[in-house]
């Protein structure tokens, strides 16, 4: 059983939803970012999405665009992101890490080498925003052959005709983007999310995590009542933007994570 499967199975047994947190690797710098990464599990993150910075994050809103720039200015590279995962795995074997980003840095790194190094570093899954199933042969297939899950985004525009195609090679979990828009944009209504999950349920048994526009413990709790996972990204990343210095960034991200985790844990009790 993969780390992702194990984690979602354990949480299902506990009767609660997963808190999935997103931060950009190398933001605001390598050391502080590694501290955040290492602190997230204790602060209640069940699954960690780690953003691979790219100069042209076309599907991201301002918060993650700025996070990307901070990371790149601090010298983050794909090789360093893999190194962060290695260092994280020294004392954590249970929390799944999913790398999220755009295809070009991986294309440049070389798919074969990337998959091998990601596997060795302890990466559990990939979310590649600009690789739809039409391009599965490039990365999804080799990654899955190496035991790395390929997590698909489904969106309000993914209709019933297209959904089977998108889900066909999905593994790990399904990420439902609840708003047509960029990351950090407005949030969806409970009714919309309820309907969307019911629709996805008809097509898949994979855990369903919902993201986009979830910023507060209350919002996280509301989604946790409906979905198997709650994804929070921009709100955490904003804490780094607002912090005066790296130390405060670490503290503020982890304390928001704790508050979100409380919200998620309280949701079904």
């Amino acid at each position: 059983m993969s780390r992702l499967e194990q984690r979602f199975a354990d949480l299902k047994a506990e009767g609660r939803s997963a808190l999935v947190t997103f931060v950009t690797a190398g933001d605001p710098g390598y050391d502080a970012s590694l501290k955040i990464l290492k602190g997230l599990p204790a602060a209640g993150a069940d699954v960690i999405e780690l953003g691979m910075p790219f100069t042209d994050p076309m599907a991201d809103g301002v918060a993650i665009q700025l996070a990307t720039l901070r990371a790149l200015e601090a010298g983050q590279t794909l090789a360093k992101t893999l190194q962060m995962v290695r260092e994280f795995r020294v004392d954590n074997q249970n929390t799944p890490i999913v790398l999220m980003g755009y295809y070009n840095p991986i294309h440049r790194f070389g798919v074969e080498q990337f998959v091998a190094e990601a596997r060795e570093a302890g990466v559990d899954g990939l979310i590649i925003v600009d690789l739809p199933p039409e391009h599965d042969a490039e990365l999804a297939t080799p990654a899955q052959a190496a035991g790395i899950d390929f997590i698909r985004l489904t969106t309000p525009t993914t209709d019933d005709a297209r959904l089977p195609r998108v889900l066909e090679r999905s593994s790990g979990f399904v990420y439902y983007v609840s708003v047509a828009g960029v990351t950090g944009a407005g949030s969806a209504t409970t009714e919309h999310v309820t309907e969307a999950i019911a629709r996805l349920r008809r097509h898949t048994d994979l855990p369903i995590s919902v993201g986009f526009g979830i910023r507060t413990p209350e919002q996280a709790a509301a989604i946790a009542r409906l979905a198997d996972g709650v994804v929070v990204g921009s709100a955490l990343v904003d804490k780094i933007a607002q912090a005066k210095g790296a130390e405060q960034a670490v503290t503020d991200v982890l304390s928001l994570c704790s508050a979100l985790a409380e919200g998620v844990r309280a949701a079904r009790n």
């Binding site: 076309m58 599907a59 295809y103 925003v129 600009d130 690789l131 739809p132 039409e134 391009h135 698909r152 985004l153 489904t154 969106t155 309000p156 525009t157 993914t158 209709d159 297209r162 998108v166 983007v177 047509a180 828009g181």
Partner: peptide
């Protein structure tokens, strides 16, 4: 070439 876009846009480009 190809269609390397976010899933939200895939139905639109198709």
């Amino acid at each position: 070439g190809g269609r390397y876009v976010a899933e939200t846009l895939m139905p639109l480009v198709l």
